[in-house]
Amino acid sequence: MEITQGTLAEAWQRTAAGHALLHGVGLPPVAFSDEALDECVERAEEAEDEGLCLLLDENGTVRGHYGAYREAFVTSDLEQVLYLIAEAAVRRRGGSVAEVADAMERIDPAWGRRFRSGGLDDTGTVEACGRDPLEGLAWIAGSWREQHPYTTLAFFRAAPGRTVDAERLALLYGADPAQVAAGTRLKDLKAVDSGRAHGDRQWESCCFGRAGGWTFLLYHDAPRRAFANKEAYTALGIEESVRLSATSAKAIYTFDYLRDGRRVDDDQGVLELIWYERGLAPYLRGGELDFLNRAVRRAELDHPEVTDTFELYFHALEKSLGLRLPRRDFTEGEVRAAYWAAKSS
Rank of each mutant, 00 (worst) to 15 (best):
Val74Ala: 11
Ser241Glu: 10
Val242Met: 14
Glu288Cys: 13
Val97Ser: 15
Gly95Asp: 14
Trp139Asp: 03
Ala197Phe: 13
Thr61Gln: 05
Ala89Glu: 04
Asp302Tyr: 06
Thr4Gly: 07
Asp102Asn: 03
Arg327Asp: 06
Tyr69Phe: 13
Gly174His: 04
Arg328Ser: 12
Thr125Ser: 09
Asp267Met: 07
Leu189Met: 05
Val90Ala: 01
Leu258Gln: 13
Glu58Tyr: 09
Glu50Asn: 07
Asp266Lys: 02
Glu311Asp: 09
Ala44Gly: 14
Met1Tyr: 08
Ala72Lys: 07
Gln147Arg: 13
Leu325Ile: 05
Ala342Trp: 08
Ala159Cys: 05
Gly199Val: 02
Leu323Ser: 01
Ser117Gln: 06
Asp256Thr: 08
Phe208Trp: 13
Asp132Ala: 10
Glu39Pro: 03
Gly213Ser: 04
Arg298Thr: 01
Ala249Trp: 02
Val62Tyr: 00
Glu45Gly: 14
Val90Cys: 02
Ile107Trp: 00
Arg262Val: 15
Met1Pro: 15
Ile274Leu: 09
Ser143Arg: 14
Arg106Asn: 08
Val41Leu: 03
Pro29Leu: 05
Leu236Ile: 04
Ala222Val: 05
His23Asn: 07
Gly118Glu: 05
Met104Lys: 09
Ala222Met: 13
Arg285Met: 06
Ala228Tyr: 09
Leu172His: 11
Arg278Met: 12
Leu137Ser: 09
Val242Tyr: 04
Glu35Asp: 14
Pro326Ile: 01
Ala44Leu: 04
Arg210Pro: 00
Val306Cys: 11
Phe227Leu: 11
Cys40Trp: 01
Trp275Tyr: 14
Val81Ser: 11
Glu87Tyr: 08
Leu84Asn: 05
Ala316Ile: 00
Arg224Trp: 13
Glu167Ala: 08
Ala110Asn: 06
Arg196Ser: 03
Asn59Ile: 00
Gln268Glu: 12
Phe155Glu: 09
Gln179Asn: 11
Thr331Ser: 11
Leu56Pro: 12
Asp121Trp: 08
Thr234Lys: 15
Leu292Tyr: 01
Arg185Gln: 09
Tyr83Phe: 14
